[in-house]
């Protein structure tokens, strides 16, 4: 029962990944693409966490911690590049 709930959650997260990818392909300006990149990042963070839950090993949960520490770095780098001074 619980396992089916987790599978439904995985399916919904994959669908929202597709929404982010649509904006990534379509986006008229660079900022739109970066917003889509941020959304894809958060979605795949949650996806990694749920995958760690499915496998049930504690060491798998270190990956979203490390990536959660580093994920905002890319967005800040691109935003500073747009503003002109990196």
């Amino acid at each position: 029962m619980i396992k089916y709930l987790i599978l439904i959650a995985v399916a919904i997260i994959l669908m929202s990944l597709l929404g982010g990818l649509y904006r990534f392909f379509k986006g008229p300006s660079l900022v739109d693409k970066v917003v889509a990149f941020d959304s894809i990042t958060v979605n795949s963070l949650v996806l990694i966490g749920v995958m760690a839950l499915l496998t049930g090993r504690a060491i798998y949960f270190d990956v979203p911690i490390v990536y959660g520490l580093l994920s905002f770095l890319g967005v800040i780098v691109v935003a500073r590049y747009i503003q002109g001074g990196l």
């Binding site: 798998y60 270190d62 990956v63 990536y67 890319g74």
Partner: peptide, 17 residues
């Protein structure tokens, strides 16, 4: 998981920077 951690930090963080 160790390769995944390295890929996430280097491939997606440092390379972009």
């Amino acid at each position: 998981p160790d390769v995944a951690m390295t890929e996430a930090s280097i491939g997606s963080g440092l390379t972009t920077l």
